[in-house]
Computed example of a mutant assay.
Amino acid sequence: MTLQGWMQIALYGAVVLALVKPLGGYMTRVFNGERTLLSPVIVPIERGLYRLSGIEARQEQGWLGYAGAMVVFNGLGFVLLYALLRLQAGLPLNPAGQAAVAPDLAFNTATSFVTNTNWQSYGGETTLSYLSQMLGLTVQNFVSAGSGMAVAVALIRGFGR
């Protein structure tokens, strides 16, 4: 490896170490429901979404409701990603004219990305349209990690009682 490569690794490590304390503290405040720098912007949006959803923000959710919400959320993510992959031939942002993904491959890919294992058994740009990659895989990469963090926080809260 070159000197430049080692320097990049060292710089990356230094940036990660420098961000541990401020980001960790921020995440702790968010998960504990404390005020943060972004609260004036985020809290009104959050309250509006809670009001639309009929959720009482101060009421704790039981494990059964939480588990059900996670199953429904990830189940809907799976169904939407599977449908996107199966219907990509007729959807926009498909300039290469990619055909619909085969049922077994669409199932495998949707399951993989919803569970955040991201096992790819296809040829990327030679199989998936831009829309499938952007709206399907990228969104699932984000929300599957977020739902995993939500489960971890719920477990920590549950065991911390």
Rank of each mutant, 00 (worst) to 15 (best):
E34Q: 12
E60D: 14
T28N: 03
P44D: 15
P95G: 06
P95E: 11
L19I: 03
R157T: 11
L137G: 12
E56F: 12
T138R: 00
Y122E: 05
L81P: 02
R29Q: 03
Y82N: 02
E60S: 10
A154I: 07
G24N: 09
G25Y: 00
A150W: 06
A69M: 15
M149E: 10
A110W: 00
V143C: 04
T115Q: 12
Q59M: 07
A89C: 05
G24D: 14
Q59S: 05
I156F: 14
K21C: 01
Y82Q: 06
F113S: 07
A57T: 00
T36R: 06
Y12H: 14
S144T: 06
L87C: 10
M7Y: 05
T109M: 07
V143F: 15
A110G: 01
S129I: 04
G65Y: 10
F73S: 13
W6N: 09
T117P: 12
A14H: 04
L76W: 12
G54Q: 08
V72I: 11
V72S: 12
M149R: 13
Y26I: 04
L80H: 14
M134F: 09
L81Y: 10
M70Y: 11
E34C: 01
A10H: 03
G24F: 04
L11R: 10
N141C: 02
F31N: 13
V101F: 02
M134T: 03
G77V: 00
M134A: 14
W6V: 01
N116P: 03
Q133T: 02
I9E: 01
G75P: 10
S39V: 08
S121A: 13
I45R: 13
G62A: 11
Y130R: 04
L155Y: 04
M149N: 10
V114H: 08
V153H: 05
G136P: 05
Q140L: 13
R86M: 08
L52T: 06
A89L: 05
Q140I: 05
L23P: 03
M149L: 15
A83H: 13
L37V: 15
G13R: 06
E60H: 07
V43W: 07
A96D: 14
G90D: 14
Y130G: 03
A10L: 07
Q4H: 02
S129N: 01
G13N: 02
G54D: 08
Y130A: 01
W63C: 06
R29T: 03
A89M: 02
A10P: 00
G124L: 10
S112G: 00
G158A: 09
F142A: 04
L85G: 08
R47N: 14
I156P: 15
L85Q: 02
G24E: 10
L17R: 00
P44L: 15
G158I: 06
A102M: 10
R58Y: 09
P22T: 12
M1P: 10
A145S: 13
G33D: 06
E46L: 08
Q98S: 01
G160L: 15
Q4W: 05
G136L: 05
V143R: 06
N94P: 09
L135I: 14
A96F: 05
F142G: 00
A14R: 04
Q140P: 02
A14K: 03
M134H: 13
R35M: 08
P92I: 06
G13D: 01
S112N: 08
L128C: 12
P22L: 08
G124C: 01
